[in-house]
């Protein structure tokens, strides 16, 4: 074999795979004509390959498919909401966020029953009513939760009453906006607005100019 160049052996295999080029085939044939050993190798290889033609075709035993069906796990294929969630991960995340957010907002509305108000130096508290006395000017916003508000003087800012009523005397002046919140949705809206105000400070500053 030492006289046989390596590339000829390679060409023989290319020839068997049907991937030999014309030039390569010419070189191979030239060599085969002079080398009996390589001729034998090629013949033996072709013979070996031809043996596979005698190999029987084998069929799966009877009941094979039933056997597969019996081994299939039940309902492994994900369907319905689960599949939808997998295909829309961002929507799923947004939905989950909304559910959790609204749950916390609703629960804080339901549970927050305590009377409270923004501490300002001049206001007077009578029972569960916050009074802004006549002639006094409150600088800043005023928020009253679960109680009433009676304004006789002036409030230089926004007024918010949550779950309560607001009474205005004829002398009352509110320079900012004023609102009363009694329903869940109002509450929600108020929360969203206050979050937005925290995030975007400019919206807070623009308010006094527009009103």
């Amino acid at each position: 074999m030492e006289k046989c160049p390596k590339h000829v052996v390679h060409y023989i295999h290319l020839y068997l795979d049907g991937e030999i080029s014309n030039e390569e085939e010419i070189i191979m044939n030239e060599h085969l004509n002079t080398c009996e050993e390589c001729q034998t190798v090629l013949e033996e290889l072709e013979e070996t390959i031809s043996l596979f033609k005698n190999v029987d075709v084998i069929e799966a035993p009877v009941g094979f498919a039933t056997g597969v069906a019996a081994r299939l796990p039940q309902s492994t294929i994900r369907r319905g909401p689960k599949k939808w969630l997998r295909q829309h991960p961002i929507m799923a995340a947004a939905a989950l966020f909304l559910i959790l957010m609204s749950a916390s907002l609703f629960s804080s509305f339901e549970n927050d029953q305590q009377f409270s108000f923004t501490k300002q130096p001049d206001v007077i508290v009578e029972g569960e009513t916050v009074v802004v006395p006549a002639g006094k000017i409150i600088k800043g916003d005023l928020v009253v939760k679960n109680g009433d508000l009676r304004i006789e003087g002036e409030v230089d800012g926004n007024v918010t009453v949550i779950r309560g009523s607001k009474y205005m005397a004829s002398t009352a002046v509110i320079t900012g906006s004023s609102e009363e919140i009694n329903e869940v949705f109002d509450w929600l809206w108020y929360k969203i607005k206050s979050v937005a105000k925290d995030i975007i400070p400019s919206s807070k500053e623009q308010k006094p100019e527009t009103e």
Partner: peptide, 15 residues
């Protein structure tokens, strides 16, 4: 529908 796939490929895969 999977059963049809099994029936179609069973002999080749078994072989």
């Amino acid at each position: 529908a999977f059963e049809e796939i099994v029936i179609h490929f069973q002999h080749r895969l078994y072989q």
